[in-house]
Simulated assay, not measured.
Amino acid sequence: MIGFYNYSVVLTYISLASSVFGMIMAIQGNFKVAIVCLAFSGLCDMFDGKVARAMKNRSEDAKAFGVQIDSLCDMVCFGIFPSLICYLLGVRGALGLAVIVLYCTASVIRLAYFNVMEMKGALVTEDNHKYYRGLPITSMAVVLPLVFLVQFFVSEAIFLVILYLALFIVGTLFIVDFKFWKPKNSTLAMLVAVVAVALVGMAFLKK
């Protein structure tokens, strides 16, 4: 079979499987499960690079494959999946379509640009500190669960406005050229804790 099959890409595939399952749940109207799947995909993505780098005997082709497969899965998990959730939650009509198209297009551009920079090693400073150009696409795995939680405290109209703004602002930040320093482990742990609290709260709240 074509491709590379080793533990360095296992988390990436688990992330993809979680998002595909989440899309099915969203289509069936089970948005809470869908949001949990999105957050779980983000958690997997947080560690897949660390797992890949831990495998020291990868060939150059295997490394290049890992970069490509990660971005392809990221497009599904954090590009298409959040867009589908937002559409099903009410981001529709001409304006909704425009915002979703913007978000998805920005996602593709951001991932393609990241791949180019990553292959050139251009995202590391002279003192070996890594940074991103633009907002990482996985940010939506943090933003959307928090936005989804807001709906339990505001009217449907206000919630829809927030959804539109979230897609537009996050999508735009994907392609705005600014340095986003790679978060430290302590920062990542804090983000995980915040999202976990949001998910727990979401599980108990009803509207």
Score class of each variant (00 low, 15 high):
residue 10 V to H: 09
residue 158 I to W: 12
residue 160 L to I: 09
residue 87 Y to M: 02
residue 123 L to K: 09
residue 84 L to Y: 08
residue 137 I to W: 00
residue 50 K to I: 15
residue 174 F to A: 12
residue 60 E to M: 12
residue 117 M to E: 13
residue 193 A to C: 13
residue 127 D to F: 08
residue 35 I to G: 02
residue 47 F to G: 02
residue 61 D to W: 08
residue 122 A to D: 12
residue 152 F to N: 15
residue 185 N to E: 14
residue 43 L to Q: 02
residue 136 P to K: 11
residue 183 P to I: 02
residue 140 M to H: 07
residue 204 F to A: 14
residue 158 I to D: 11
residue 80 I to C: 14
residue 3 G to N: 11
residue 14 I to F: 14
residue 169 I to V: 15
residue 130 K to H: 09
residue 76 V to C: 03
residue 47 F to A: 07
residue 46 M to S: 09
residue 24 I to G: 10
residue 190 M to Q: 04
residue 123 L to Q: 11
residue 48 D to C: 07
residue 69 I to H: 01
residue 11 L to K: 01
residue 52 A to Q: 05
residue 165 L to R: 03
residue 37 C to P: 04
residue 32 K to C: 01
residue 16 L to D: 01
residue 199 L to D: 02
residue 34 A to V: 05
residue 42 G to Q: 01
residue 86 C to W: 03
residue 147 V to H: 01
residue 86 C to K: 02
residue 26 A to E: 04
residue 142 V to R: 01
residue 126 E to M: 11
residue 94 A to S: 11
residue 103 Y to A: 09
residue 51 V to Q: 08
residue 10 V to I: 13
residue 198 A to D: 00
residue 90 G to H: 03
residue 33 V to F: 13
residue 124 V to W: 08
residue 139 S to R: 00
residue 132 Y to W: 08
residue 16 L to R: 00
residue 33 V to L: 15
residue 1 M to N: 10
residue 108 V to C: 12
residue 65 F to G: 05
residue 175 I to L: 05
residue 112 A to P: 05
residue 138 T to E: 11
residue 171 G to N: 03
residue 137 I to S: 07
residue 140 M to R: 01
residue 65 F to P: 00
residue 66 G to E: 02
residue 124 V to F: 09
residue 202 M to R: 03
residue 30 N to K: 07
residue 122 A to Q: 09
residue 135 L to N: 04
residue 63 K to S: 10
residue 28 Q to K: 13
residue 90 G to L: 09
residue 206 K to N: 14
residue 185 N to C: 06
residue 90 G to E: 05
residue 121 G to M: 10
residue 73 C to F: 02
residue 47 F to T: 00
residue 167 L to I: 03
residue 22 G to R: 06
residue 58 R to G: 08
residue 63 K to G: 02
residue 32 K to N: 14
residue 173 L to E: 05
